[in-house]
Nucleic acid binder design. Structure first.
Lengths: 113, 113
DNA sequence: TGACATATATAGACATCCGATATATAATGC
DNA sequence: GCATTATATATCGGATGTCTATATATGTCA
């Protein structure tokens, strides 16, 4: 099922921070990882990810370092900072509150029977 | 807990359509109703709602009619069309898919123990 | 009569995300 | 040896959705 593009926004940073919780990743890798972990639901685009990562770096939620792989390609790895971990926790609980509220509204109705 | 404003967007139309599933409502009423049904989580603003309703009307998902209350105030009621019902079902399943995927990503990690 | 709640409405600003495009290198195919 | 594809990062312009601020008019209450 095709996800409506406009359904949700602003949760991409939450997802990216969450991915980095388990260890440092480089951008291209995040795209694959997110797709895998969401069973192909979240297809993060490069044009979305890189500006987002730069923003997270500016805010101090992640730090970046370059590393050249055996293949010879230079990869830019991102690391979750302490601040990033705090932000992640906040965003997670905000998401949970939001999802709960959605559940209440979507379940609450249908009293026509 | 304060919900981050930017966390989710695009789901307001889903919520509004859902409210109208149970019967016709006027705008101001939707704000209260949504707030009540979400336990004070969703505080829809008038400046968000009215343009949204006009958009839904343009798309044929709702129809509108005016009615004067006993109080003397003229209220603009909105009614969910057949098309609106279809759109509601689609948006609901899109939301469910999204929420499930979020759940998978948010639960999947944390393997550091 | 002045303040407040009800009720609808628009304009301007802002954040988020996507598509298109650009660059450079490595691997693969012919 | 050369072309194509995959990897990897990056920026720009635009579409969308929501907010704040503002405007309007009426009803209620002190």
């Amino acid at each position: 099922m095709e996800l409506e593009k406009s359904l949700v926004s602003g949760s991409m940073s939450l997802l990216v921070l969450k991915l980095l919780e388990d260890g440092d990743l480089y951008g291209y890798q995040m795209i694959d990882e997110l797709r895998r972990r969401s069973d192909d639901t979240f297809r993060l685009r490069a044009g979305t990810l890189y500006p987002l990562l730069h923003g997270l770096e500016e805010k101090g939620l992640v730090t970046a370092y370059e590393q050249t792989a055996d293949s010879g390609k230079t990869r830019r790895y991102y690391h979750l900072t302490r601040q990033g971990r705090d932000a992640l926790r906040e965003k997670e609980s905000a998401w949970n509150a939001y999802a709960r509220a959605m559940g209440r509204v979507l379940k609450g109705g249908a009293c026509l029977a």
